[in-house]
């Protein structure tokens, strides 16, 4: 269960203050599939990043399964991101110097990769259909393949929450469909919570939760 209460986020751009989120409150049940939609610049990514503990809100609180992100120490946030959150970006954000397999293992590189972790990473790459691409570099992979590596990376930690920021924004529609199929399948198999930012409502199903943002505020009627 994600519990967002009155979250505010402001950026400073020189002298100017940009109010990206102006008091957002919402709840996303555990295991749900939620879509954040809205026009460009409305604050969708900001909300998603705050859920992923990539920054701290200026006000309000975010609780995930009872743990209050806003009150956590830096070290706790690191551990939280490492162990519980899977992130998928629009531009894949793989690391060019690492192979597909190593990219999946990134969360564990600083503390050492055990043989069982490596097996897990390989199994995940098999699951997303990249059995024969494990030792390729990102630039040797197509966009769809790169995004599948990113999905494997998000899932290796067995996350409680997977966050995706326009995961198909740089892919053609056929590949995009493929990515959503994989995301959906893995989400139901693992019963993780999935939150996706998109402005393509094509993928939204009737029983999904939809959060529509405009100007940093939630439109409640959707």
């Amino acid at each position: 269960m994600i519990d967002v209460v009155d979250v505010i986020k402001t950026y400073r751009r020189g002298e100017q203050r940009v109010e990206a989120l102006r008091g957002i409150s919402c709840q996303i049940p555990r295991g749900a599939c939620a879509f954040i939609v809205g026009p460009s610049g409305s604050g969708k990514s900001t909300l998603l990043y705050l859920l992923g503990a990539l920054d701290r809100p200026a006000g309000g609180s975010i609780r995930i399964d009872g743990a209050d992100l806003t009150g956590m120490s830096e070290a706790d946030l690191n551990a939280y991101r490492r162990d519980h959150i899977g992130f998928i970006f629009q531009s894949f954000n793989l690391i060019g110097n690492l192979t597909a397999l190593e990219n999946v293992l990134i969360p564990f590189l600083p503390r050492g990769v055990s043989a069982s972790l490596r097996d897990r990473a390989e199994a995940l790459l098999d699951e997303v259909g990249l059995s024969d691409r494990k030792h390729h570099r990102p630039r040797q992979l197509s966009g769809g393949e790169q995004q599948r590596v990113a999905i494997a990376r998000a899932l290796i930690k067995d996350p409680v929450l997977v966050l995706a920021d326009e995961p198909t924004g740089e892919l053609d529609s056929k590949t995009g469909d493929e990515i959503y199929r994989i995301l959906r399948r893995l989400q139901t198999e693992r019963a993780t919570t999935l939150v996706v930012v998109t402005h393509d409502r094509r993928f939204i199903r009737p029983d999904d939760l939809v959060l529509e943002i405009q100007d940093g505020q939630l439109l409640t009627d959707s």
Binding site: R82, N93, I106
Partner: peptide, 16 residues
């Protein structure tokens, strides 16, 4: 910078 962002997103600490 983006690369460090990815690492941090995946739980790397500042120290890492």
């Amino acid at each position: 910078f983006a690369e460090f962002g990815v690492l941090r997103t995946n739980g790397w600490s500042r120290g890492d």
